[in-house]
């Protein structure tokens, strides 16, 4: 996914002279082809994220579309005021390509885990927050970024993630993709949680629970119309995200439904990371297993919630 996003920056640079790339202190082989073809639009600026964001804002104020790549925590926590003031207040078309969303960097510990990135980016006016499901969808997203007039936070996953989207899905920023039509239950996921959710829906189908899957690749601006439409048709909604409980996809869905369907929200459960700094190392998969972010665990949680929902709905 990261490789695809960076290769796409090079493709976009070929197509549009406004595109520039800025890295902080990335690997020496990063985007070497773009560096060789467009040396004037390739910048590697060292470990100085605050300066990198401000510099991108200065370029964008004069007509460029900077694509910045570094580790997610440094684009969010480290340079938050620069993102808020330089990018969001000025409402500039700068793209933050954030490596290691969620618990990708599990072995490196909590300083490197972007577990609240969606929450803090989503809190900023004018910001767009996107987490695609696989490298193919990344390609479609990147073309869509060229003419979007606002800043965009692009959350990357580990790389080599199974391809679960298809060209027929298309891609429009702010428009959710209904990967599987719902019956009684709707799963809403973002990022690479789409794969486990689709597998969980298969498992549930085998147990007689018809479960739809809505892929909310754009968490902000959220596709409120799709949510409202589907919420009126199902008896249970379950959100699934590789992000802490606070402020992420689940919060966004709850807020949206509460605003748009006051008093008529179906039972809703949130599957996420807990509101805590992870204490284990290991791998991303081990953290998924620990926190119920695998297909069998999601299926089990949905089944339990479905039973509770039926009980809640009983007169």
């Amino acid at each position: 996914m990261r490789q695809t996003s960076l290769k796409m920056v090079h493709e976009l640079a070929k197509a549009d002279p406004r595109v520039v790339f800025i890295g902080s202190d990335l690997g020496p082989d990063t985007l070497t082809e773009m560096r060789d073809e467009f040396p004037n639009r390739f910048f590697m600026e060292g470990i100085s994220e605050q300066n990198v964001i401000g510099m991108a804002a200065g370029m964008a104020l004069d007509g460029f579309i900077p694509y910045i790549n570094t580790i997610a925590t440094f684009l969010t926590r480290r340079s938050y005021e620069q993102v808020a003031v330089d990018l969001c207040l000025h409402d500039l078309p700068v793209r933050l390509i954030a490596s290691g969303g969620g618990v990708v960097y599990a072995p490196l510990g909590p300083t490197h885990l972007a577990i609240e990135d969606i929450a803090i980016m989503r809190a900023l006016p004018n910001m767009t927050v996107v987490a695609v499901a696989d490298a193919e969808e990344m390609r479609r997203l990147m073309w869509a970024t060229l003419d979007w007039p606002h800043p965009i936070y692009i959350r990357l996953a580990k790389g080599g993630d199974p391809v679960v989207t298809s060209p027929e899905d298309g891609f429009t920023l702010g428009k959710a993709i209904l990967k599987r039509a719902p019956g009684d239950v709707l799963l809403v996921s973002t990022g690479v949680m789409l794969g486990p959710c689709l597998d969980a829906a298969d498992l549930l189908d085998a147990r007689g629970i018809n479960c739809g899957v809505l892929h909310m690749h754009t968490v902000k601006p959220i596709d409120a119309d799709a949510l409202v439409d589907l919420a009126g048709k199902v008896r249970l909604i379950v959100t699934v995200e590789e992000h802490i409980l606070t402020g992420g996809l689940g919060s966004a869905v709850l807020e949206t439904l509460s605003d748009r369907l006051p008093g008529r929200i179906p039972p809703l459960r949130r599957i996420s990371l807990p509101d805590a700094f992870p204490v284990k190392y290991g791998s991303q998969q081990e953290h998924h297993r620990l926190n119920g972010l695998t297909a069998p665990a999601i299926a089990q949680a949905v089944e339990k919630a479905a039973v509770e929902a039926v009980v809640e709905a009983a007169p």
Binding site: N51, G54, G58, L61, D62, G63, F64, E81, Q82, V85
Partner: peptide
């Protein structure tokens, strides 16, 4: 006014970006 300022330490990075933009253009 070329940039919103008030939070300190933002002007010089933005100015660096503008100077690089001028060079590229």
């Amino acid at each position: 006014v070329e940039a919103s300022t008030g939070a300190l330490g933002h002007g010089l990075p933005i100015g660096v970006g503008m100077a690089l933009a001028a060079r590229m253009q």
